[in-house]
Design a binder for these strands. Structure first.
Length: 960
RNA sequence: GGGUGGUUAGCUCAGUUGGUUAGAGCGCCUGCUUUACACGCAGGAUGUCGGGGGUUCGAGUCCCUCACCACCCACCA
């Protein structure tokens, strides 16, 4: 007995266990050894994260593809796993330590800290996996991987060493995006540009706010809230002359949004062709507050239109200035420490060549203050010295760290880089020649755009949680890159022996002694960017660098399903690294889905508080309802704006399906083993076979084309509007009637169609369908196999236009009668006689065959034929046949007259519109023949319809 | 500054290569204990397809333009 109500909470957990126990998701099931492989790697979620709506969408779509292909008989591998998420995870653990008021990570040291992270991973790492299971994800969990697994770590080492040896990884000292809170370099992609503007206006020469005390107060107030955007104009006195604010020949004015960096200025640049300032090129200015002589140089970078036309150059704190500095061989003076505090005392570069002075002492005394505090102080001091000319509000963008949410500092450090430009060549070619295809196609443009302008990828992070860089430094600072410390030591010893820094005896002595070996080299402290290891995901998870049969069988993977937000972070890197190390693309297709947004279209974020928790929706409406909603809304190229009313609607859909199955059971509809739907005799059954085949085709085609919404809608329509609304209703008289042969066939067919439905719906709603499959028997026996492994409907030869035509007529007739009854306010209890007016033989036969159904569904008392339409009856046209409801006395004659008038009006409008088309010589001359023919037929039909309606109206008037 | 997408019913959204009278869900209105289902059944109303122009026999669909809304990339002294 099927339960009266479906309880998703109970069923879902049980069903999932059944699948796992049966090994249903395992790749390489023996019976599929010869099957075509289908593989997908999951975008690995953060190991300590939890499921958000983006995951729900992403994994629902992958699961639909995997379940679909599994049912189509393929050997499916959905490779699951998690990412160690370097920065994110380390931050979480550090925050926990802080909350518990424990000593910081630097206090306890690397080893102890990593123990804590691993402990946290052990504690929380299962959460997201369990949540994926709640969603129904059919991953092969026996193959679950983690980016810091032993195997994946070996892949990382091998890749790093190989790329280093091939000259594609190198160490370089240049400006990086430095996060002063996390104390690490980050890549360009991890920097968010935030627009900010200011409000403070002040001018030394004007009236705006001349009082220095008031200025100081305003500055304090303004700079207290960051970000802000102000342009500060400073006079830099020229060397060799006495500064006179009234005499432009004694100074050069520069404008900056970052006053504190002036301490690191090493030049002022003007455009070589600047008419106003060009003559100053070659002279020098004296850097205020410091006393350093800095040259005035000519460089195209200085735009005469911007600022004052003269720009201060701070090579160590600005990306553009860095380039200018390189061109002019300027010193790079870093004046900040890693935390963004002024680093002035003991700063040799800063003090180099600067004569001691009171100014300098005062400035160096600022050592250790924060960069924003420094900004205020510098401005105040410049103002006090009369060198601040003015302050203007401005709007500009400020770089923020996407994790730490603090202002990022361009900072001069040694870091490891990947030569992305070289690797990008192959990755672009692979998409250009179609070895990998993006769906929707337009994302390829985004991909190319970025690839063409790709910058060196900074891969080192000053973190502890991650893959430590396999680089060791010798006593002279020389770097040795190798897959293990032993190899590095061996390499280093050999090197130093050849260089005659060591004798071979010394080298051998070191090599023999483990302690000395370990002390001989120092390992690089840094770890790799998380995306470095995720970039290897499509092959590292398949067993590389070992010889793994899975790699040969499942690489390249069939499709990658992911959001557009990580095309650069992840997709591009996998393309580059996959092509380099496997000589083939990592995936054939890349399906890019949209972001899930809230109802108003805003990106969901914790800070906005508009996050909808997928688990809460699963609790409330079932995983199936959530999945179906996401699939139905996943139209290509558009964001998914999630409304919970949709989830509720699809929960109702599940209930509808459940009840339809209960109905089938109550009427003794049981799956007949070996039943052939092509053999049925009843028109109704031929019709549902025809419709089921059509639905199956639509759904299959849509999934293959990644048109998930079309697939979901086709399934929805078939189940609700075809199977439930009509097939079951039309079958009721047969199921309750006396014809045992027809009844038996129909019972079998109801069960067959239900089974088809359950299969077609399974990729979308795996739980309820599997449960229905379980509770419905096959013949006298329970089902032998699970639905998850059942065969996808793929039948041919069930098309049946004759059945479509006949059942279509019945449906139209019933619908028309219902419509008229409602319009005429005929009470449901009133049964009406129905007359076919001069029916064709076909219509008469059909009416006879469907008498019971028509009577029941249209609430008709009897059906007869008439030579003429009776007076005062309602006239209907059903597929060209005239039908009347002779209900004089019941209907409102005036209302019927109005209805007929309206119908005639419609017919007139149709005729007029078609005539306009057919009357157009150009249309007749140029439109395709079938379009014209269609219009002619339609006109004929409309004219006939009009004539009948007019006649009916005449009769109505006669009756009145 | 460069780019992408969007603007269709009260709301959330479909509408593949131009071709019937533009659709769905939710909401709304009317009626219904019709023996699976009120998480239901039956019927109904609602659109200048953002504005303007163009191409075409024919435009929600293609082109131009304007407006507004998102988002991405780059950068500004």
């Amino acid at each position: 007995m099927i339960d009266k109500t479906y309880q998703p909470g109970d069923v879902e957990a049980r069903i999932y266990e059944t699948w796992e126990a049966a090994g249903a998701f395992r790749a390489g099931r023996p019976e599929r050894a010869e099957a075509e492989p289908f593989s997908v790697v999951i975008p690995p979620p953060n190991v300590t994260g939890s499921l958000h709506m983006g995951h729900a969408l992403n994994n629902t779509l992958q699961d639909i593809l995997c379940r679909f292909e599994r049912m189509r008989g393929k050997d499916v591998l959905w490779q699951p796993g998690t990412d160690h998420a370097g920065i994110a995870t380390q931050m979480v653990v550090e925050r926990q330590m802080q909350e518990r008021q424990e000593p910081g990570r630097r206090d306890i040291g690397r080893e102890k800290f990593l123990e804590k992270v691993w402990a946290w991973k052990a504690e929380s790492g299962g959460t997201i996996i369990n949540q994926l299971k709640r969603l129904g994800a059919s991953c092969d969990w026996s193959r679950e991987r983690f980016t810091m697994d032993e195997g994946l770590s070996r892949a990382v080492l091998k890749v790093f060493v190989q790329l280093y040896r091939d000259g594609l990884i190198y160490k370089d000292k240049r400006l990086v995006n430095w996060d002063p809170k996390l104390l690490t370099a980050i890549s360009d992609l991890e920097v968010q540009q935030v627009e900010c503007s200011g409000s403070l206006k002040w001018s030394r020469d004007g009236e705006e706010q001349p009082d220095p005390a008031a200025l100081s107060q305003a500055l304090t107030k303004t700079l207290a809230r960051n970000p802000n955007g102000h342009l500060y104009y400073f006079d830099y006195p020229l060397a060799g002359v006495d500064y006179d604010p009234a005499d432009p020949a004694t100074f050069i004015t520069v404008a900056t949004t970052r006053p504190e960096t002036m301490l690191g200025d090493t030049a002022v640049a003007v455009h070589p062709e600047n008419e106003r300032l060009g003559h100053l090129i070659g002279r020098a200015a004296v850097l205020p507050l410091v006393g350093r002589r800095i040259p005035i140089i000519g460089d195209d970078y200085a735009d005469p239109e911007k600022g004052t036309g003269a720009v201060k150059i701070t090579p160590a704190h600005d990306f553009n200035d860095f380039d200018v500095g390189k061109r002019h061989d300027l010193p790079q003076i870093s004046i900040l420490d890693i935390e963004g505090k002024l680093a002035l005392s003991q700063n040799e570069a800063f003090l180099d060549g600067v004569a001691t002075s009171d100014d300098l002492y005062e400035t160096v005394a600022l050592h250790g203050i924060d960069r924003f505090e420094a900004r205020r102080t510098i401005v105040e001091r410049m103002a006090a010295k009369g060198l601040l000319r003015k302050i203007e509000p401005t709007t500009h963008t400020v770089p923020y760290g996407d994790r730490s949410n603090v202002v990022i500092e361009p900072f001069l450090t040694d870091q490891w880089y990947v030569d992305a430009k070289t690797l990008a060549e192959g990755a672009m070619a692979a998409v250009r020649d179609g070895r990998t295809t993006f769906i929707p196609k337009n994302w390829e443009k985004t991909y190319f755009e970025w690839m063409e302008n790709i910058q060196p990828w900074c891969i080192s992070r000053q973190l502890w949680w991650g893959h430590q860089i396999p680089a060791w430094y010798g006593p002279d600072g020389r770097v040795f890159v190798a897959e293990s410390e032993d190899e590095a030591v061996a390499e280093a010893l050999a090197y130093y022996v050849t260089k005659e820094t060591l004798t071979s005896e010394e080298a051998e002595a070191i090599a023999r002694d483990a302690g000395r070996r370990a002390a001989f080299l120092t390992r690089d402290e840094d770890v790799l960017d998380t995306w470095f290891s995720s970039g290897l995901w499509p092959f590292s998870t398949l067993g590389w660098p070992d010889e793994a049969p899975e790699l040969a069988r499942f690489y390249p993977t069939s499709v990658l399903v992911t959001g557009f937000d990580i095309i650069f972070f992840w997709v591009a890197r996998m393309m580059m690294l996959g092509l380099y190390f496997q000589k083939d693309v990592p995936f054939r297709d890349v399906y890019i889905h949209a972001l899930v947004r809230d109802e108003k279209g805003a990106k969901m974020s914790k800070s906005k508080g508009n996050v909808i928790d997928p688990l809460a929706l699963i609790e409330q409406y079932s995983a199936d309802a959530l999945r179906f909603t996401l699939a139905a809304m996943a139209a290509q190229g558009r964001d998914v704006k999630l409304a919970t009313s949709r989830v509720e609607g699809y929960r109702n859909f599940g209930t509808k399906l459940w009840n339809a199955a209960r109905f089938a059971e109550m009427n003794g509809c049981v799956t007949v083993p070996g039943f052939d739907p092509a053999s049925v005799k009843e028109t109704l059954n031929k019709w549902i076979a025809h419709e089921a085949q059509r639905a199956s085709r639509e759904i299959t085609d849509a999934i293959v084309a990644y048109r998930f919404n079309d697939a979901a809608n086709a399934a929805y329509r078939f189940v609700w509007n075809i199977y439930c609304d009509w097939y079951l209703e039309l079958a009721k008289p047969v199921l309750m009637g006396p014809d045992s042969e027809a009844k038996a066939e129909t019972q079998a067919m109801v069960a067959w169609a239900r089974d088809e439905i359950v299969k077609l719906l399974h990729p979308f709603m795996p739980f309820i369908t599997e449960e229905l499959w379980r509770v419905t028997a096959e013949g006298a026996e329970p089902r032998e196999s699970l639905l998850v492994l059942a065969q996808w409907p793929a039948h041919e030869g069930l098309d049946n236009e004759a059945a479509e035509s006949e059942i279509g007529w019945v449906i139209d007739l019933v619908t028309e009668i219902r419509s008229v009854r409602a319009e005429m306010n005929v009470p449901p209890a009133t049964l009406m006689p129905l007359a076919l007016v001069r029916p064709s033989d076909a219509a008469r036969e059909r009416a006879a065959r469907w008498t019971d159904v028509i009577k029941r569904l249209a609430r008709v008392s009897e059906i007869e034929s008439a030579n003429a339409a009776p007076a005062g009856a309602v006239q209907l046209l059903v597929r060209g046949e005239e039908v009347s409801l002779p209900l004089k006395g019941v209907i409102d004659l005036a209302a019927e007259g109005a209805r007929l008038d309206k119908e005639i009006g419609k017919a007139d409008a149709d005729i007029k519109r078609i005539d306009a088309k057919l009357g157009n010589a150009d249309f007749v001359a140029r439109a395709p023949e079938e379009v014209i023919e269609e219009q002619r037929e339609r006109r004929e039909e409309a004219v006939e319809r009009r004539a009948k309606l007019v006649a009916a109206l005449e009769r109505l008037k006669g009756a009145a």
